[in-house]
Amino acid sequence: MKNIIHFRTTLLIIATVLILPLTLDSGTLATEVLIFSLAALGCNLLLGYTGLMSFGQGIFLGVGSYATGLSLLHWQLPVLLALLLTMLIGALVALLVGWFSIRQRGTYFVMLTLAFSQMFYFLAYTMTSVTGGDNGLLNIPRPSLSVFGIELLATATPWQYYSFVALIFVLVFFLLQRVVDSVLGRTLLSIRDNEARATAIGYDIRQFKLAAFIISGAITGLAGGLHAMMTGIAPLTNIEYHISESILIMTVIGGTGNLFASVLGAAFYVLMGDWLSELWPRWLMLLGFLLIAISLYLQQGLFGFSKSLIQQITNRFRPDRAPDNAKQEKHS
Rank of each mutant, 00 (worst) to 15 (best):
M1L: 13
L11D: 09
A15H: 10
L20A: 05
S26V: 06
V33R: 04
L34H: 04
C43I: 12
C43A: 14
C43S: 14
N44V: 02
Y49T: 06
T50Y: 00
M53R: 05
G58S: 06
A67V: 05
L72G: 09
H74C: 05
L77D: 03
L88Q: 09
I89Q: 05
G98C: 13
I102W: 02
R103V: 02
Y121G: 02
G149F: 13
T155P: 01
T157C: 01
V172H: 01
T187E: 00
T187G: 01
L189N: 11
D193P: 09
N194V: 08
A196E: 15
R197V: 10
A200N: 10
I205M: 01
Q207P: 00
L210I: 13
A212P: 03
I215C: 01
I215P: 00
G221S: 01
H227L: 13
A228K: 05
G232N: 04
I233Q: 08
L236M: 07
L236A: 09
T237I: 08
Y241F: 15
I243E: 11
S244V: 05
E245L: 14
S246P: 00
L248D: 03
I249A: 11
G254D: 00
G254T: 00
G255N: 02
T256H: 01
G257P: 10
N258Y: 10
L259P: 02
F260P: 01
A261F: 07
F268R: 04
L276I: 09
L279E: 10
L287D: 04
G288Y: 06
L290W: 02
I294T: 07
S295P: 00
Y297L: 08
L298F: 12
Q300S: 12
G301R: 00
L309Q: 08
I310Y: 14
T314H: 12
F317A: 02
R321Q: 11
P323L: 13
N325W: 15
K330P: 02
